[in-house]
Amino acid sequence: MDSNTYKLTKEHFLDFSAAVTGFSKFKLQGTGQVSLYFDTIRGVIGDEMFAELLQTFCGDSKNVDKIMASLKLGPIARNIIKLWYIATWEQLPLVWQEKFGATLNDGTFIASPYAYTEGLLWPVIGVNPPAAKAPGYATWSEPPKFYKPKEKKPN
C-alpha cells in the first residue's frame, strides 16, 4: 500500500499495535482501550506526527525495525508499547523534545484507572493487577497462568 494512503485511523493504529506488542488485534481490542489510547497519543504528539509514524509502518511489520531505529519515531513507538503494557504514557526524553519540538501535552501519566487493569503486563506475567481486579479467592495459591502469544510465522 502506498504510504500516503495509509491514513491515521484506529484500524491502522491497531495493526501497528499488534505488530509492536506481540499481541493479536483480537486481544488488543479485548482490552477495550483502543479508542482511549488512540486519542491519548493524538493528544500528546498531534495528528501529523502520529500519521507519519503510521505511514512509515504502512501495515508492514518489516518496517517496525526502521521505526524503532528512527530517532524521531523510535521513542514514540516505544511509548506506545508502554501504553499498551502498563497504561502509562511516559514523558518523551528531553533530547527528543529539543530536537523534534516539545509537545503541548506531554508528561507522564496513566491513561485511565481502568486502562491500568487492562495492561498487557498482567497476562504476560500471569497475575491480576493487585487490588484492582479480583482473581478469585485462593487462586493466588495456584501457579500463574501465562498468556502465550502464538508463534509469529516468518513472512
Binding site: A134, G136, Y137, A138, T139, E142, K145
Partner: peptide
C-alpha cells in the same frame, strides 16, 4: 469449588 471459581474469573 475454590479452583472452579478461579476458572470462572478467567
Amino acid at each position: 469449588l475454590i479452583p472452579a471459581v478461579g476458572e470462572m474469573f478467567r
